[in-house]
Design a protein around this nucleic acid. Sequence first.
DNA 1: CAGAAGTCTGACCGATCGGTCAGGCTCTGA
DNA 2: TCAGAGCCTGACCGATCGGTCAGACTTCTG
Lengths: 195, 195
Amino acid sequence: MVRAVSETHGEILAAAARQFTVSGYRGTSLQDIAREVGCSKATVLYHFANKEALLAELMAPAIGVLRDLDDRLTGLTGSAAQEVAAQGFVDLAVRFRREIAVLRGEFPELLCQPAFAHIQQISDRLRDALAGHSDRPGARIAALVLLAGISEACGEFTDIPDDELRAALLTLVRRAVEPVDAPLPQPPTTEDKDS
Amino acid sequence: MVRAVSETHGEILAAAARQFTVSGYRGTSLQDIAREVGCSKATVLYHFANKEALLAELMAPAIGVLRDLDDRLTGLTGSAAQEVAAQGFVDLAVRFRREIAVLRGEFPELLCQPAFAHIQQISDRLRDALAGHSDRPGARIAALVLLAGISEACGEFTDIPDDELRAALLTLVRRAVEPVDAPLPQPPTTEDKDS
DNA sequence: CAGAAGTCTGACCGATCGGTCAGGCTCTGA
DNA sequence: TCAGAGCCTGACCGATCGGTCAGACTTCTG
C-alpha cells in the first residue's frame, strides 16, 4: 500500500504523539509506532531520519512558542517579569499539554541531545523571570515548583477544558508566586535560620 | 574479592541510588551499577532477585513514611486535612529527595509493577487531602500542581539545607493551596463557564 | 513505452538489555 | 582434614532496541 507523502508522514507523527504520551519517549519503540500506523519500522525510518528527529518535529511548535515567550521576557524585571512569565507559561502548558507530557521526566537525558540543547537555558531564564529575578531561595523554590508542577499536572487534567484550566492555573500561580516588589511580604513563617 | 554480605549489599544499594537519581530507573542498567560497585552484574543479581527488587528495597523507607502519612490523614477534612497533608508531604519530600527524584517521570510505568501498586491510591488520597477534599477544579488543580512540583523540584535544590527547604516549601504550600473552609475566596477569575 | 523518482518492505546488523547457570573461591565448624 | 555454606564470576541466553540496505512496487514524466 502506498499513500501520499504527507499522509503517512502525518500518521506516523500522530501515532508517535499518542505513544510518547502514554509510554514516554524511551518507553516507545519505533516498532510500536509502526504497528499503530500499520506500516513497517523501515517506513518510519524512511520518513524520519531517526527516532530523535521524530521527537524534534513533534516538539517544534511548542518549542517555537517557548522561544517567543523567552524573547518577550528580555528586559523585564520584578513583578512585570513574573506576570508575563506566568501568563505565557500557563498558556503554553495548556495548549501543548500533550507535548509537555511527553518530556515528563525524560528532560535530563533528552536535553543532552543537540536538537534540544538550548531549551535548558530558556527554561532557566523562564524560572528566573517567574521568581522576579530575585535570588531569595523562597522565590527560586516557588518558581521551580510551579513550573515543574504545571508541566507535570497539565497532562493529567484531560477532562478540564482549556479555558477553565488556564484560568485556574493562572489564579494559582499569582497566588503562589513570592512577591518581589514589596520589600518583604511580612514573613509569618515559624522560624528563620539564615545559615 | 569477597566481602561481608551486608557490605556488598549496601554498596550495590548506594550505587543504584546514585545511578537511578542521575539516569532514572530505566536509564540505568544492572551493568552500570555493577561497574560503579566494582563487581560483576551477576553479583548484583546474586544480592537482589531482580532489578525491580533493588528498586523496591531502595524505596522501602520512603514508602513507609508515605503510608504513615496516609494513616494520619484518615478522618481529617477541610483545612485540617490540608495542613497535615502539607506538613507531612513537605517533610517527606525533603527527607527523601533522592528517592523521589528516582521516580521522576517513571511513575506511570513503575506503578504498574506489583511492588508499587498501592502507591497510586495513597498519592490520590494525599492529593484529595491537600485539596481539602473539595471537588472544585481550582482546589484539585492546585493540589496536584503542588505535589508534582515539589516532587520534581526537591531533587534540584541539593544546595539548600533541609531546614531551609522545608520551611520555604511549607510557606509556599500554605500560600498556594486553595482555602476551603471559607465559603469562597472572592473569585476574581475572568469568566466562569460551568459546562 | 522507458526510466526516473518516490514509497515501502523484509531481512538483517551490532549493541544492549535483564536474567540464568555451572563452577571457582574463601571461610567455618565438625 | 574435609564437607558445606556463602560469595562471586565469566560465559551464555533470548529478547528487543535503533538503524541499514537492496530491491519491489507504484506513479509521474519525457
